[in-house]
Design a protein around this nucleic acid. Structure first.
Length: 160
DNA sequence: GCCAACGTTGGC
DNA sequence: GCCAACGTTGGC
């Protein structure tokens, strides 16, 4: 079981939006970056746990935990000419872009802000800190434990 | 809203 | 295959 950090702009799709889903799942579509795509297609599996991160706001922060409920499959929004994520190069034989499905798990009692993360030297290797714009990032076991502790959650979160 | 970082595109 | 131009991301 692996850990990840997924970025989203809350104005577009927030952790509360995920919570309010009737089935409490959501397809994480529209990722159009090859490195992130490779993670979604090849590495993310059911049961992996996700730090849900809100970006592009006054105080960017990890606000909750989600869980992978479906591993990578072709992103059909790439083949919708009316959609904003359309990619004319994508086809049934070569979908190019992939997505996973996530389920809401638990919010952080205290959101862990980007500032908090930057202030912790043990978190200095996170892509988030290195200012990468990568929207899907791996998180190490240690980073996971530290961030859960900082946010007021017990470490023993397990896949459902 | 600014702008630095950085990924992608396309001419050569 | 290089690299300049361009577009996007995302912190501030």
């Amino acid at each position: 079981m692996a850990y990840w950090l997924f970025k989203t702009e809350p104005g577009c799709f927030s952790f509360d939006d995920l919570h309010n889903r009737p089935q409490m799942t959501e397809p994480w579509d529209g990722v159009r970056n090859f490195q992130a795509r490779n993670f979604l297609r090849d590495t993310v599996v059911v049961g992996d746990l996700v730090l849900f991160y809100h970006s592009n706001i006054a105080e960017p922060a990890v606000v909750g935990i989600a869980e992978i409920v479906r591993a990578g499959y072709p992103d059909s929004t790439a083949r919708d000419p009316q959609g904003e994520h359309f990619d004319p190069k994508a086809s049934a034989a070569n979908p190019i872009w992939y997505l996973v499905d996530v389920r809401y798990r638990i919010p952080f009692p205290t959101p862990v802000t980007l500032g908090d993360i930057k202030n912790n030297p043990l978190l200095g290797d996170m892509p988030l800190v290195k200012r990468s714009r990568l929207s899907i990032q791996p998180v190490s076991d240690l980073e996971w434990q530290l961030i859960l502790t900082m946010g007021g959650l017990p470490e023993g979160i397990r896949p459902l």
